[in-house]
Design a protein around this nucleic acid. Structure first.
Lengths: 161, 161
DNA sequence: GCATAACCAAGCAAAATGGTTGGAATTAAA
DNA sequence: TTTAATTCCAACCATTTTGCTTGGTTATGC
C-alpha cells in the first residue's frame, strides 16, 4: 500500500521541470542534481513520462526536457499513473463486471471501490500548476528567512528513508 | 500502490467471521473453506487480527474465533491497519515535522498528505457492521434468484488473479 | 568533429509477497 | 484417559517487485 520511489521521485522531477523549463529546456542531469536522484534511474522515469505524453525532449547538445503542455492542464494523477501504472489499490474482477454478488464473498468489493475512488479523486484534483505556484511562494518566503536561520541544513540531513 | 492479499483476504475473513460467529465460535478451517483461502496462510492473518485486539480465540476442540467487540465498533481501517500496518501511501520525513519547506524540494509533501488523508478517511468511515448488513441483504436477494439462474458458478470461476 | 545531451537494453542485489512445512500446546468430548 | 480438533508458533522458501547500475548507441549544436 505504498507509493514507490517512481511516483515520489517522478513527481518531484515534474515540479522541478515545471519550475525551470518555462523558457529553455532542462537537462536530465540538472534535475537529478537539484533533486538528488540518480541520473540513470531518473532517466527511466523520464522515459515513462515522455511515453505518457506529459513531457517532450530534444536530443543532442543543449537538449533537454520541457513540459508537453501547461502545468495547469497536468494533474498529479496524470503523473502518478504514468509512473506507477494503474493507481487502483485493489483490482477485483467483480469491480467493473456484474458478477460476485454472492453474499459475503464479495461485499468487500464495495470497500475496494471506495478506496480506489478516493485516491483517484484526490490525485486528479491536484494540478501541477498549483504545486508550482506553492513552490514559488514557499521559495520567496524562505529566502527572506534563510539568512538568519539555516533551515536548509536540518532539512537535507533528513534523507528520505 | 496495491493492497496486498493480507488486507484483501483478512477483510473477507472478518466479514465471514462477523456473519457466522454471532453465537458460537468459528473455526479457522471453516472460514478458510468458505472464503477459499489457504488455512496456513489465513492463520497468520488471524494472528495479526488477534494481536490488534479485533478478535478473540478459544483453543482446543470446539474452539475457534469470535469478534472481540460488536461489528459496528470495528472499522475497515482498524482491520486493514492490523493486517497491512500503516496505511500511509507515502512516508515523508517532512510530513509530521516542520522541516523541508525549502521550495521545490518538498511541495510534494502536500500531495502525499492529501492522499494519506483520503485513504484514512474512507477506510475509517466504513464499519464492519455495515458490510455485514449489506452482505445479509445481498444473500437474501440472491437466494430468491439462485434457483433459476446459477450466478454462483460464473462468479467462482473468476478466481482472483 | 567533439562535447553534450537523450535514448536503450540488460543485469542485479535486496526486499517484499504469498505462501508452505512441521510441529507443539490446549481442550472438549468419546 | 485417550483422541480428535483446534489454536499457536517458528521457520523456511520460491517468486516477484523494487530500486537501482552498467555499458553502451544515437542525435545535435557549436
Amino acid at each position: 500500500m505504498k507509493l514507490s520511489t517512481k511516483g515520489r521521485y517522478g513527481l518531484r522531477a515534474m515540479v522541478d521541470l515545471a519550475l525551470y523549463s518555462e523558457k529553455e529546456t532542462v537537462s536530465l542531469s540538472s534535475i537529478a542534481a537539484r533533486q538528488d536522484i540518480s541520473e540513470a534511474y531518473l532517466e527511466q522515469l523520464m522515459a515513462k513520462l515522455k511515453k505518457a505524453g506529459l513531457i517532450i525532449s530534444s536530443r543532442g547538445a543543449q537538449g533537454g526536457y520541457q513540459l508537453a503542455r501547461p502545468a495547469d492542464t497536468i494533474s498529479v494523477g496524470d503523473i502518478l499513473r504514468a509512473l506507477e501504472g494503474d493507481l487502483d489499490a485493489v483490482k477485483c474482477p467483480g469491480l467493473s463486471a456484474e458478477g460476485c454478488q454472492t453474499g459475503d464473498l464479495c461485499v468487500t468489493k464495495y470497500v475496494w471501490k471506495k478506496i480506489n475512488e478516493s485516491i483517484t479523486d484526490t490525485v486528479d484534483e491536484i494540478l501541477l500548476g498549483t504545486l508550482v505556484k506553492e513552490s514559488k511562494k514557499a521559495r520567496e518566503k524562505h529566502s527572506t528567512i534563510s539568512e538568519k536561520k539555516n533551515i536548509r541544513e536540518s532539512c537535507s540531513a533528513k534523507k528520505e528513508k
